[in-house]
Amino acid sequence: MVWLGAGVLGGNALAQTPLNQTPLNQSPLSVAADAIPHAEILEQAERLADDLKLKIIEIPNGVNPNALLAGGDVQANFFQHVPYLRTQEEALGQKFEVVAAVHIEPLGIYSRRHARLADLPEGAVVALPNNASNLSRALFLLQDQGLLHLRPGLDDPASGLATLADIAGNPRKLRISEVESPLLPRVLQDVDAAIINGNYALEAGLKPARDALALERVAGNPYANVLVTAPALARDARVLRLAEVLASPQMSAFIRERYEGSVIPVH
């Protein structure tokens, strides 16, 4: 694992107005996070509140941050949305606590071969995330863009998880390829299009607000990325302090300035 220190992003005007409080006088809070944007946002949280001390653990591919949290290896994680968390609770037989909703990373459709969705040919190969919640999310995005039709009753992402079996209409005869989410940017050159999570797009040097052929709508989006902890730590002063800073106007301003529409603050 890579242990990240503060100061990676450099100073900015937002860091000049810290959210000061009486020091917590406790050991640093260990938080597992994706590198971009989550670890960057956590580093900014430390800058904004000089009483907040974090041990930020960058998540390598193949490591499940919810398993780390369930096993007590970390005290919180910051990388996921609630629909994914619920599937993890079922898989791990473990309950977790959501303590803050922070930002939305709109899922996007990307292509190296085509400049517009209208250019996708009949039989185009489209790569989608292979985990249940993000596969569903991708199918709804394809439906929103008129590329697929899901069965009646699946009207929006909050109505339930869609699967490939729920495709009721496929007018362009798209061929769906399921790929592990972190690998989607790597296969982009080998397919007609890929639907990629915002964090993995950013890590690959893509700018969703500029490079995506289409993005998820933000209004009513249930996929806000959240700070998660174990039930026993839900009232821990360090966890509550981090949640407060992540939901602050200063953090929202940082996210808007830093990511220019590719990451959107909830608050």
Rank of each mutant, 00 (worst) to 15 (best):
M1D: 15
W3G: 14
A6S: 09
L9W: 10
G11C: 10
A13R: 12
Q16S: 06
L19R: 05
N20I: 09
Q21A: 03
Q26N: 11
S30P: 15
S30F: 10
V31W: 08
D34A: 02
D34T: 03
A35E: 14
L42K: 07
K55Q: 15
V63H: 13
P65S: 04
N66L: 12
L68E: 13
G71H: 11
G72P: 07
G72A: 08
Q75L: 07
Q80S: 09
E90N: 06
L92F: 07
F96C: 10
V99G: 04
V99N: 05
H103L: 14
I104L: 13
E105K: 00
P106S: 00
Y110V: 12
R113D: 15
R113L: 13
L120Q: 11
A127H: 04
L128P: 11
L128S: 04
N130C: 06
A132N: 05
S133Q: 08
N134S: 09
L135N: 09
L135T: 09
R137A: 02
A138M: 03
A138D: 03
L148S: 04
D156N: 12
A168C: 10
P171V: 14
R175D: 10
I176N: 01
V179M: 02
S181I: 10
P182F: 00
L184D: 02
V187N: 05
V187S: 02
L188M: 07
D190W: 02
V191F: 03
A194C: 13
N197S: 06
G198F: 01
N199G: 00
A201N: 02
E203K: 00
G205D: 10
R210L: 14
A212P: 11
A214S: 07
R217E: 15
A219T: 12
A219F: 09
G220V: 14
R235I: 08
R235C: 12
D236R: 05
L240F: 01
R241K: 08
L246T: 04
L246K: 01
A247N: 13
S248G: 05
Q250R: 02
Q250Y: 05
S252A: 11
S252L: 11
F254R: 01
R256Q: 13
R258H: 10
Y259N: 04
H267G: 07
